[in-house]
Design a protein around this nucleic acid. Structure first.
Lengths: 229, 229
DNA sequence: GGATGTGAATAGGTTCACAGCG
DNA sequence: CGCTGTGAACCTATTCACATCC
């Protein structure tokens, strides 16, 4: 029995994959805009992102933005439209747990880069790191997760702790109000359904590449076809 | 017109997703084995990996390993079977290009960890890093890519360079014989079809998490359901 | 003419459900 | 019984193809 008391405003429903590509389009549109081009066609976006033009149009359909049949999409308007869809107008605070090699690299990668989504707190159980500011980010002991996450209204967490600690730390974050996790620990987290987990498994990815590199035929001719649309 | 001169041995065909999960199963089976359990059921593997039992059986089917209906799978045999399928018996050498924060973290992550798949060379255009051994890995200037990759028969590359350099570096690697790339640069690489590229886009992943964390309803009751099979 | 927007067709991956077996 | 192996159903994502518009 479908619930038809859905609000009138047709809230767009985009799949996981679509969200990822929208993030990509956004980045590429920034480049297009920087080049001073006021309009783009779907096939141009597609080429930049390595997808098909139909895919681009389908994705843009899902956020309800329409282009003009003969000029394509208005670069600035489309960019604004995607940002409006993807981002929280107030911005979102992020916490990172596990300030090891990977944690530091991730911190460096995100620090100061994006205003709408900033890593505002780091946690580690190494006392040598506490109270220090690492890459523009205050570092706290693990038992400060609860108060800090609550105080800064952090809803997104990045997990760069060893697999053995991941489940426990994740639960603490969720307990404190986090409902989205970017998990680098090679472990399947068991968490409440309302929490969205995105896994990045470096070892798995490398093994996949290694596997498929073995399967690929060696280059046959000097003039190989080129991948992408 | 299908080519039916396929060799008789039914070479297993596994999809991209399946390869990723096999890598996961392998890791979990190592744990199961370390616990001294000689047999596992598909539902146990499934629980450890956060997938469904049917999925596990399907995946194992694709590598042609069979279990026993009442004891499940022989842990050691299955482990061996997966490793035999995933890994090159001779081992594979890997090169990393871009020894920045992320590059170093990745190096630290993989160094000495896995015998069948080792990062044996790093490249960077910062002269301060040349000829040094960073995390057990010799660092060369970029113009040494060709000779080093050829000499060590490297077929897999890890790209941790800025987006602006990614395409060029990737082409050089491929030119030297690389046919699998783990790409951390936020850019769609345009490469010959025989090259397998696995993209890890950190910014995109974080944006996805942030997006879905906004959509998720806050916890309603104290006793939430738990995700996973 | 060449673009967009979109229903319909296709491809691909996951789950169901059940036969078969120990 | 409860497990495995697997055809078939299902569901999701992508692509095709074409009506439509400037």
């Amino acid at each position: 029995m479908p619930d038809d008391r859905t609000p009138n405003l047709k809230l767009p429903t985009a799949s996981d994959r679509t969200i990822g590509r929208l993030s990509l389009y956004r980045r590429m549109l920034n480049i297009v805009k920087a080049e001073g081009r006021p309009y783009v066609y779907s096939h141009q976006i597609a080429a930049l992102c390595g997808v098909t033009p139909a895919q681009v149009r389908r994705d843009l359909m899902s956020i309800g933005y329409s282009g003009s049949p003969n000029r394509g999409y208005d670069t600035s308007e489309l960019l604004w439209s995607i940002e409006d869809f993807l981002y929280d107008p107030k911005g979102q605070n992020v916490a990172l747990v596990g300030v090891g090699n990977l944690g530091r690299a991730i911190l460096a990668y995100f620090t100061g880069r994006r205003p709408r989504l900033s890593v505002v707190a780091a946690f580690d159980n190494d006392p040598a790191k506490h109270s220090r500011v690492i890459l523009g980010c205050r570092c706290y002991p693990l038992d400060q997760i609860e108060p800090v996450v609550r105080a800064q209204e952090i809803r997104v967490g990045i997990l760069t702790v060893p697999a053995s600690a991941a489940q426990l730390v994740a639960e603490r974050l969720v307990e404190a109000g986090v409902c989205g996790l970017l998990n680098f620990a090679p472990m399947a987290l068991r968490l409440p359904l309302h929490v969205h987990v995105e896994d990045i498994d470096l070892a798995m990815s490398l093994e996949k590449v290694a596997f498929f590199s073995r399967r690929r035929s060696r280059p046959v001719a000097a003039t190989d076809k080129v991948a992408g649309s």
